[in-house]
């Protein structure tokens, strides 16, 4: 279903969605992040990209699994705390970040569904905003089978046409959102459609960064486990967690018990994000660390995204958002690394 929505009507549309929790990008001291919105006027879709992707809403950095406490007769009692979420809408989701959620869906879905993830995922509608200008100079979505207008994972896709948005409804969830304010949406004119096509074409040209031979990367990687390339590329790595914590597709986590009181016993089991770039990520309790140096950790990050995941799910585990490139404190550039991988040994 294709519609147009005047920009000035946008807050009105949001107002009709009062039964939903609304998330949207908000700016504070030059920093953009997805936050819970109280008034529709807070929403400003004139943004580039956020530091953290909407992953943080569906798969929050801290999740309480269960509470446990000692009771006199029963021993230890356990109370499961599944998220029971009100339906939510996230506005202004970039196509790369929406596509990233389709990838984490594979990880948390399949034979064993992770209820904590899915309870939120199913309740959340994603309203995308296509990228008529690339949000970051390091965007490279075209390389990894994405596009600035990709619809993967989205329920609605909006495109900025100047004074109005071109609104494409893609799923049932999306239809519900649009139908809640039917009168605000108009049928697009021929001119609108032409406009859209032109913007789409121009947008692709504006993405300047790409991996030349991405197709060669997965098979090359298979042969490169012991390559000295990892040593060279990781020389400047400082072992922080920026690249993976900011990545919209990274999904590793750790589970810990947090004790509130030891007598009587009371506490929570908590899941938090974890990070393969930290030295203690693979540390065994014997003291042995199978990934003992930073070369092996950088290799893991690249291999997981462009080899293991491709073998398992036939997708790159990367959507080209460019966050890990822009935010790396020492300029490690995944595009350069992949270029070197594809050229390796040639």
């Amino acid at each position: 279903m294709e519609k147009v929505l005047a920009k000035k009507s946008f807050p009105q549309w949001v107002k009709t969605l009062s039964s939903y929790k609304i998330f949207a990008p908000i700016e504070k001291e030059d920093l953009w992040s997805y936050e819970l919105i109280e008034k529709p006027e807070q929403i400003n879709l004139d943004y580039l990209n956020t530091v953290l992707s909407p992953k943080k809403i569906i798969f929050p950095q801290r999740e309480v699994y269960l509470e446990f406490f000692a009771s006199n007769e029963e021993g230890i009692e356990v109370k499961e705390l599944l998220p029971d979420e009100k339906p939510s809408v996230i506005f202004g989701v970039r196509p790369c970040d929406a596509k990233a959620l389709t990838l984490t869906d594979k990880v948390f879905g399949g034979d064993f569904e992770d209820l904590y993830y899915w309870n939120r995922r199913k309740q959340t509608a994603l309203v995308g905003l296509s990228c008529s200008t690339p949000p970051s100079p390091n965007c490279f979505c075209l390389t990894v089978d994405g596009s600035p207008f990709s619809k993967d994972g989205l329920d609605v896709l909006m495109t900025d046409l100047g004074d109005k948005y071109f609104v494409e409804t893609l799923t049932k969830k999306g239809e519900q959102l649009v139908n809640s304010a039917k009168t605000l949406f108009k049928a697009p004119t021929e001119k609108d459609k032409k406009n859209l096509a032109k913007i789409q074409q121009d947008a692709k040209k504006k993405i300047t960064r790409q991996v030349e031979n991405i197709k060669k990367v997965p098979p090359q990687l298979k042969e490169m486990f012991d390559s000295p390339l990892w040593d060279e590329e990781s020389m400047s790595c400082i072992q922080c967690g920026i690249c993976t914590y900011l990545c919209p597709t990274c999904h590793c986590f750790d589970i810990n018990d947090e004790i509130d009181s030891s007598s009587p016993l009371k506490g929570k089991r908590i899941r938090t994000w974890d990070n393969c770039q930290f030295p203690d990520f693979t540390m065994h309790s014997s003291g042995h660390n199978p990934r003992p140096d930073k070369a092996s950790r950088l290799r893991q990050r690249i291999m997981h995204k462009f080899q293991y995941f491709v073998e398992l799910y036939k997708n790159y585990q990367c959507t080209g958002c460019g966050r890990c490139i822009s935010q790396c404190p020492v300029g490690i550039d995944i595009i350069e690394v992949l270029d070197k991988v594809s050229d390796y040994g040639a």
Binding site: L52, Q61, I238, Q239, C240, G241, I242, Y245, D254, N256, W273, N275, F278, P279, D280, P329
Partner: peptide, 22 residues
């Protein structure tokens, strides 16, 4: 978000064992 970049980048944070590590 406890990415520990501030610790990792610091030339003085060279301890083999850090209090934040699990």
């Amino acid at each position: 978000i406890r990415c520990y970049a501030c610790r990792s980048v610091c030339p003085m944070c060279y301890c083999d064992e850090c209090v934040v590590d699990t």
